[in-house]
Amino acid sequence: MVSRVVFGRGSFNQLDEILAPMRKGRNAPFIFYVDDVFKGNHWLTSRITLSYKDKIVYVPTKEEPKTSQIDQYVEDIILAHSELPSGIIGIGGGIVMDIAKAVSLMLTNKGESKDYQGWDLIKNPAIYHVGIPTISGTGAEVSRTTILTGPERKLGINSDYTPFDQVILDPELTKDVPKDQWFYTGMDCFVHCVESLNGTYLNAFSQSYGEKAFELCQDIFLGDNLSEKDSQDKLMMASWHGGMSIAYSQVGVAHALSYGLGYLLGVKHGIGNCIVFDHLEEFYPEGVVMFKKMKAKHNIELPQGICADLDEQQLNVMIDVALSLEPLWENAIGKNWKNKITREKLMTLYKLM
C-alpha cells in the first residue's frame, strides 16, 4: 500500500516540503516526469522547484508506455549522474505515473524492463518515488502495477515494490481535462469497480473499496446538480478507492481484451476499456446497462469498427495477448475459465468492436 498520502485542493503546493527530507545530496537529483501537455503551463511547472541537478522530463502521452522507453529513461539517468536519484516524481495521468513507477524500479534491478513483466519478478526495492495524478480514474496512483507494452506482450510489472512511497491528491490539477478524456478515464475507474465486485477474487477488503468507488461513479456520471469542484474531488476519490479495490482482487474481461487492443492497435487504455465494455453484456449485464446510460447522458460516441479490417493473423495476436492474462480470466470466470473462454469466443467479441 502507499504509505503516505496528502489530499486537498492546493496540496500540490506542499511538494517542496514533502521532498526536502528525502534529498540525498547535491549529486542525487530529483527527476520529475511531467505530462507534456503541461509544457509551457507555468500555472503548474512554476510550482516545481529545481535544485542542484534536478531535472524535468516532459513525457509524450499519445502512446502507452513501452519497455524500450523505460530502458532509455533509465540509461539516460545512469549516464548523466554519478549517483542514483533521490527520487522519481510522476506528474500526469496513468501513463506518466506508470513510467515513474517503472523507472524507479529499473534503477535498482538489473536487466531490461521486459524481463520483469509479470507478477512478483522484481527482487530489489525501488528508489523513492512520488505520484501526482492530474487526471482521475486509472488508479495508477495506488496500484501495484505499471502497465507496459513490450516486444511480446502488454503486461504490468506487478510487485510489492511498485506502489508509490508518497501520493499527492490535488483535485485542482484536473481542472483542464477535456470532456472526452475525463469520461474515458473515469470509466476506467467504473470498470475497475464492476470487474472487482463481480469477480471470484472478491473479499471484504476489496468489496468495501469497490462499493464506495462504484457509488461515487454513479453520483458523478449519472447524478445531477454536482458542482465542477465536487465532481473533481469525488472522481479523485473514486479513482483511489477503485485502485485499492483491484489491488486486493483483480480486474476482468474488459481489461484482458483491452490489453489486446492496446498491444496491436495502440488504443489507449481508457478508451480501449470503453470500446470493449460496450459489448460485454454477457459478462456484466447490469454494469453495461449503466455504462450505456452514462455514455448517453454525456453524449459520448465511441469509435466503431476498429477491428473491421483486421485479418485473422492480427486478430490472433490480440487473442494471444488477452489469453496470457490468466489471473484476469480466473477472477472473471473462475478456475475453469479455459472451458468457457475459447479463441473462437474472443474472435467473435473482437469482431464486434
Rank of each mutant, 00 (worst) to 15 (best):
I333K: 08
K114L: 09
M106T: 01
W337N: 08
T108W: 04
E301N: 05
G150V: 14
F38G: 14
I341M: 08
L19N: 09
G25D: 13
V2W: 10
K229E: 15
I95H: 12
K345T: 02
A322D: 01
N225A: 14
K39Q: 15
E301H: 01
D71L: 08
G305N: 13
I147T: 15
L105M: 15
I341K: 00
E112G: 01
I135Y: 03
V276Y: 13
I78T: 08
S227H: 12
L169M: 11
K340C: 07
H298M: 10
L155Y: 09
G260P: 02
K66S: 01
D165A: 02
C217M: 14
T67P: 04
S113D: 06
N273E: 14
H42M: 10
S113H: 01
A140I: 06
F214S: 11
S86L: 13
G287Y: 04
T49Y: 00
E228M: 11
R26Q: 06
G305V: 06
V96K: 09
S249H: 04
G156D: 05
D188H: 08
K154W: 05
Y73A: 03
K297D: 11
A322Y: 00
E83N: 09
F12K: 09
Q72Y: 13
S227F: 12
K101H: 11
V194H: 04
G10R: 14
S206I: 02
V6E: 13
D188K: 09
K229V: 13
L226Q: 15
M97V: 05
V57G: 05
K345A: 03
H241A: 11
P178H: 11
G252K: 08
K292D: 09
T149G: 05
A140R: 01
E228D: 15
L302W: 04
D230V: 02
W329Q: 02
A213G: 09
P163R: 10
Q218M: 06
V6P: 00
V74G: 00
G137Y: 05
K295H: 05
Q181L: 15
